[in-house]
């Protein structure tokens, strides 16, 4: 797994990342994320052990990661964390070593829920997720 320090810096400042996403195409996001590294953590979840929330547009798709709401699918199986692509829930799961997988990449662990969400967008090639059947 990558350095926690680096990861925290990258994920810190969700509000700035949202602003960047709302303004422009994915190419603007790198700049938005770079700027966010110096911003204050507004997510309210830093340092509490769980993955930090994110909200961005990646390859034209809005990906959101956040602590699961009670009763949602993520609350049961996602280690208390939900990931959505364009508002549809992507089933994610945390492995014992802290890595993450999703239902569209179920045999290949990624370091963070954001990396899993981006990998899912890559794999979907524009297709929409269908509601989880379980």
């Amino acid at each position: 797994m990558s350095s926690n320090v680096t990861r925290r810096l990258v994920l810190r400042g969700t509000a700035v990342a949202i602003a960047g996403a709302a303004l422009a195409a994915p190419s603007a996001l790198a700049a938005g994320r770079a700027a966010s590294t110096a911003a204050t953590d507004h997510s309210g979840h830093g340092g509490h052990g769980g993955p930090e929330a994110f909200d961005e547009v990646y390859q034209g798709r809005r990906i959101v990661g956040r602590p699961a709401e009670a009763g949602s699918h993520g609350a049961h199986h996602g280690g208390g964390f939900s990931v959505l692509i364009d508002g549809q829930e992507l089933h994610v799961m945390q492995n014992a070593d802290g890595t993450w997988i999703s239902v569209v990449n179920h045999y290949e662990p990624f370091a963070t829920p954001r990396a899993v969400a981006r990998a899912a967008v890559d794999k979907l090639r524009g297709a929409t997720l269908v509601p989880i059947a379980v």
Binding site: H91, Q94, V103, A133
Partner: peptide, 21 residues
């Protein structure tokens, strides 16, 4: 297919696990 997906989504490292992991 449906059975396999139901197990793969519910088998977890910290909970009940049967088909995988």
């Amino acid at each position: 297919v449906r059975t396999h997906n139901e197990f793969i989504m519910s088998d977890s490292d910290s909970g009940d696990r049967v088909g995988h992991r």
